[in-house]
Design a binder for these strands. Structure first.
Ligand SMILES: NC(=O)c1ccc[n+]([C@@H]2O[C@H](COP(=O)([O-])OP(=O)(O)OC[C@H]3O[C@@H](n4cnc5c(N)ncnc54)[C@H](O)[C@@H]3O)[C@@H](O)[C@H]2O)c1
Ligand SMILES: NC(=O)c1ccc[n+]([C@@H]2O[C@H](COP(=O)([O-])OP(=O)(O)OC[C@H]3O[C@@H](n4cnc5c(N)ncnc54)[C@H](O)[C@@H]3O)[C@@H](O)[C@H]2O)c1
Lengths: 291, 291
DNA sequence: ATGCGTTTGTGAACGTGTGCACAAAGATGG
DNA sequence: CCATCTTTGTGCACACGTTCACAAACGCAT
C-alpha cells in the first residue's frame, strides 16, 4: 500500500471488511444478504403459481441451497415461519423485498453505452425489481445521439446534473477499463455511493462507497482452473522440486529466474513437451535451470 | 424435497462443497483460486510496462488486496518470490497462467445470441486469455443466419457435434431463463463440464460439472441492501415485536398472516404506522446509526 | 384436550478465510 | 565476510460461514 489516509477502501465483491461494516447494524451476515435475492426469486415464482406456503426444504431446493442454511438466513430477518407448516410465501416475499430495499425505487445510471451497456439497457429483469434506468451516458459524440431501449443516450456532461436531480445512488460502469476509474470518480463525486463495475479494473473508492464487480474473464479463468483439475493433470510445472527445497538451492533458482529475463518465453516453450514422466508435482526444472 | 439420489449437486458460484472437492488435489483454497486472475491481470499490466520485479506490497495494492493474503496465496503455488526483492513478474505471470490452465486453449460455446450473447461474442478480453469462441448457437431461425463478431450463428442442432468435435468443455448460457436448464442439460449431455450461466435460474447439474453464475439482478439487489443501510433506516418494520416475542403470540401472528391471504398488501399497510415504541430486535436505535 | 407427525429455529462443532506479526532468507554495501 | 536493510513465507489467533442435529412449537385429528 502507499497511502496513509484512513482507508481508501478499494472494496470489491469479496470484501469482508465491508461485511463487518455494513451488517453490523442489525447483524445480517454478508453471505446471507447475497442469498436473499436468490430466495426472493424462488419465492416470486411460487407466488405466481399461487402457492400459499412453502417449507424450508422445498424452498431450499428451489434456491439451490442447504435447508438449514436457509432457515438460519431467515432467522436473521426474524421468525417468519410457522413450525409444522413452513413459510407464508407472500409474506416472505414482502419481508425480503423490504429487507433488500426493493420496496422503494432505485434510479440507476449506466455509463458507457457500447455492446454491454446496450445489452444492460435492454435488460428487462432490470426494472422488474425496483430498479429504474434513470439515464444512459456516454462520452462518444457518435453514440450520444442514439437511443437504447427507448432511452436517449446523453452526454457525460450531464452526469452530475442527472445524479443530483434524480437522486441516483447506484451507478453501473460499462466503459472500457481505461476510463472506469475516472468515470467512477465522477460518479462518486456527484453523489453515487454504490457502483456495479463491469470493466476489468480494480476501482478505488472512498470509504462509504460500495463497489461490486462482474468480471466475465475471471469467471472463465476459475472454470478453466477446475476444468484443468478434472482433466486429471498436474500442471506439468517447472518449479517445485527446487522451490520446495529449503536452503540455498531455492535462492539460486530465484536468482536464475530473475537473471534469465525472458521467463515467459523460456517457460512457455518448456510447457508443451512436458508430457512428463511420472513423479513430483512437476518435473523438468531443467528448462529454466540450464543446470 | 424429492430426490434421493447421491447428490444432484446444483452447485453455484459460492459452493463450498465444490471447494473441497476441487482444491483437494494440490490444496489450493477456492478463495485463492478466485484471486489468481486478479493477480494475473495486475502482473500482465506490469509485464507490459517491462517492470522486472514487484513486491507483495505493490502487487497487493494493484490487485486491491491485503499483502499478507497475497503472499499466502502465492505460497500455495510454491515459493516463487525472493526475500528482500519481491517476485519476478514474468515468471509469476507464467506460473499463475499455468496454474489456471491458461497455457492451453479453451474452446467455448455461447448459447443464446441475443443482446447479451452478442455483447459477449464481441468481447475482446474473451480471447485475450486462452479462451476461444468455438461457436455461437441459437434456436431462433431468424438469428441463425446472422453473424456476430465475424462468427456465424449456428443452429442448436449442431450443438452436440460442435462440442464433441471441437472438444468444448466450457459453455456459456445467455438464453432466457426458461430455456437455461434445458440448454444446460444438452451441453452437459454432449460433454461440457463447466458452465457459465447468465440466465437468472438455478441450474441443476450432475456431479463433476461446475456451474458459475453471473447475475446482474442479484448484484444490484445486494447494492440496494447496503444502500438502504447507508440511508440510515430501519426497513420500517411491520413485525418484530410480535415475531420476536416467544410464546403463543407469535403463533397467533403467523396464523393471521396465513389467513389474511394478501399478506403483501396487508403488511404494507400495517408497516407504515409501526413507529412502535422501542425494544424489538430492530426497533430503531439505528435511526441515526451512520452505517 | 391430548397425542402425533411435521417443520422451524438455533446451539454447537467444524471448516474456511483473513490478517497480524515476526523469524528467516536474501540483497547490498562496506 | 559481516552488518544492515528489505521482503518473503508462515504460525497463530480470530472472524466468518456452513452443516448437523434436536428440542420446542405448531397444526390437526381424535
Ligand atoms: N462485452 C462484453 O461482453 C464484456 C464482458 C465482460 C466485460 N466487459 C467490459 O465491459 C466494458 C464495456 O464493454 P463493451 O464491449 O460494451 O465495450 P464497448 O467499447 O462496446 O463500449 C464502451 C463504451 O464506453 C464509452 N466510453 C469510453 N470512454 C468513456 C468515458 N470516459 N466516459 C463514458 N463513456 C465512455 C464508449 O464510447 C463506448 O460506447 C469493457 O470494460 C469490457 O472490458 C465487456
Ligand atoms: N441483457 C442483459 O444485460 C442481461 C443482464 C443480466 C442477465 N441477463 C440474462 O441473460 C439472458 C439473455 O439476455 P438477453 O438480453 O440477451 O436476451 P435476448 O432475448 O436478447 O436473447 C436470448 C437469445 O436466446 C435465444 N434462445 C431462446 N431460447 C433458446 C433455446 N432454447 N436455445 C437456444 N437459444 C435460445 C433467443 O433466440 C435469443 O436470441 C437472459 O436470461 C437474461 O435474463 C441479461
Amino acid at each position: 500500500m502507499a497511502i496513509g489516509r484512513p482507508s481508501p477502501s478499494s472494496s470489491q465483491t469479496p470484501d469482508p471488511g465491508a461485511a463487518r461494516r455494513t451488517s453490523r447494524a442489525r447483524g445480517i451476515p454478508e453471505a446471507t444478504v447475497a442469498r436473499l435475492p436468490l430466495y426472493l426469486r424462488a419465492l416470486t415464482a411460487l407466488s405466481e403459481r399461487s402457492v400459499p406456503t412453502v417449507s424450508s426444504e422445498e424452498l431450499a431446493a428451489a434456491a439451490g441451497v442447504n435447508s438449514a442454511k436457509l432457515r438460519k438466513d431467515f432467522s436473521y430477518l426474524g421468525s417468519y415461519g410457522t413450525r409444522g407448516v413452513g413459510y407464508d410465501v407472500e409474506y416472505l416475499v414482502y419481508q425480503i423485498s423490504r429487507e433488500l430495499g426493493l420496496t422503494q425505487d432505485w434510479p440507476v445510471v449506466i455509463v458507457g453505452i457500447g455492446n454491454l451497456g446496450h445489452a444492460l439497457a435492454n435488460y428487462g429483469g432490470f426494472a422488474s425489481r425496483g430498479f429504474r434506468v434513470a439515464a444512459l451516458l456516454d462520452a462518444d459524440p457518435n453514440v450520444v445521439g442514439s437511443t437504447a431501449a427507448g432511452l436517449p443516450v446523453r452526454h457525460m456532461d450531464e452526469l452530475e446534473d442527472i445524479v443530483v436531480t434524480q437522486h441516483v445512488s447506484i451507478g453501473v460502469i460499462t466503459t472500457p477499463p481505461g476510463a472506469a476509474q475516472q468515470v467512477c470518480d465522477r460518479l462518486v463525486e456527484a453523489g453515487v455511493t454504490s457502483i456495479l463495475n463491469f470493466a476489468p479494473t480494480v476501482l478505488t473508492v472512498p470509504d462509504g462507497v460500495d463497489v461490486r464487480k462482474v468480471d466475465l474473464s475471471i469467471e472463465l479463468q476459475i472454470l478453466a482452473f477446475h476444468e484443468q483439475r478434472k482433466a486429471g493433470d498436474e500442471p506439468s510445472a517447472g518449479d517445485s522440486v527446487l522451490d520446495r527445497a529449503p536452503g540455498p538451492v531455492r535462492a539460486a533458482a530465484a536468482k536464475l529466474r530473475r537473471a534469465a529475463g525472458g521467463g515467459k518465453a523460456a517457460d512457455q516453450a518448456k510447457s508443451t513437451p512436458a508430457a512428463k514422466g511420472a513423479k513430483g508435482p512437476d518435473d523438468d526444472l531443467s528448462a529454466v535451470m540450464p543446470a
